[in-house]
């Protein structure tokens, strides 16, 4: 009981810090420059360092919470744990890319967008790029994974059990993106029920993706496979979708109905629920 109340206290501190560190700069930038200028515009490179810090807010929050509550770092999941886990590393990279490929094939066949004529060389160029860009850009998603899968999910699991942790963790993760979603991130701004439906969809997709990322973390006892999978989803799969349909990587140019349909292949991640439920051992570093 004492452990549970300590975990609840830690979760509250962690959430306040994660949301505060990310939301303050996002709201300031949205107000001062506008979302399209700082996040997706031509000059967004100048703002990437802010994106890196705010995107890494869950990691900063984890470190600060551990310091404030004197928790220590014994279970921080920072070891690579490559030995015996190479297949999970490969899986973390390839599954999101395959799902990206399925999403782009759906989009190409459903006349959602322009179908660019690509030479064989250029297709190979983009596919190759998706393969190395995903692990390379994992430094950008590491901050989120270190916080969500490395700290929040195990704490929620200890307090409320695994099913509740997967659901609550995903919803929290989706809500954390809200300042970006309300400005058009992922779903644009032109859809019925804007922006609430977008936030709801974001929470839904985060719950689903969280299942796969948590399974990877639980299997390997390391945070890096989940970081690679997250990056493969954000960078690699987005790049693949961009290759086959003439749209921006983050789907801003696709109609809302297309975005909904393109989320469907991600339901494949639900297959990891039985695997997670079968093996109930807690995440261990």
């Amino acid at each position: 009981m004492k452990h549970k109340s300590a975990d609840v206290k830690r979760i509250i501190i962690f959430l306040l810090l994660s949301f505060g560190i990310a939301w303050i700069p996002w709201i300031v930038l949205n107000t001062r420059y506008g979302f399209s200028e700082w996040f997706t515009g031509e000059k967004s490179y100048a703002f990437l360092w802010i994106e890196l810090i705010s995107g890494g807010a869950p990691a900063i929050a984890t470190i600060l919470t551990r310091l404030i509550t004197k928790e220590g770092i014994a279970d921080d999941l920072l070891r690579l744990k490559l030995k015996g886990n190479r297949k999970y590393y490969a899986f973390a990279l390839l599954l999101p890319l395959v799902i990206g490929l399925v999403r782009s094939m759906i989009a190409r066949n459903m006349d959602f967008a322009e179908k660019p004529a690509l030479s064989g060389w250029m297709t190979a160029y983009y596919l190759m790029q998706a393969l190395w860009l995903s692990p390379l850009m994992a430094f950008n998603t590491f901050g989120e994974e270190y916080g969500w899968r490395g700290y929040l999910y195990p704490k929620l699991e200890a307090v409320a059990g695994r099913p509740a942790a997967l659901l609550a963790g995903g919803i929290i993760w989706g809500l954390w993106h809200a300042p970006l979603t309300v400005k058009g991130h992922n779903f644009g701004t032109d859809y019925p029920g804007f922006p609430w439906l977008g936030i709801l969809l974001m929470c839904g997709s985060c719950v689903i993706m969280g299942i796969f990322f948590h399974w990877l973390t639980q299997k390997t006892g390391s945070i890096y496979p989940a970081s690679i999978a997250h990056s493969a989803n954000n960078n690699g799969a987005a790049l693949i979708v961009m290759i086959f349909v003439q749209a921006k990587a983050d789907n801003h140019d696709l109609p809302f109905s297309a975005n909904i349909l393109l989320l469907a292949p991600m339901l494949l991640y639900l297959l990891f629920i039985p695997l997670l439920m079968k093996n109930r051992k807690p995440v261990q570093g």
């Binding site: 031509e42 000059k43 490179y45 100048a46 703002f47 990437l48 360092w49 890196l52």
Partner: peptide, 24 residues
């Protein structure tokens, strides 16, 4: 290097309104 270059781009952008090309 990427972080520092982005900070420099931000400084240049803030002062001149122009941003140097991405070095990523």
């Amino acid at each position: 290097a990427f972080f520092t270059d982005s900070v420099l781009s931000y400084i240049v952008f803030s002062l001149t309104g122009e941003a140097p090309p991405s070095m990523l």
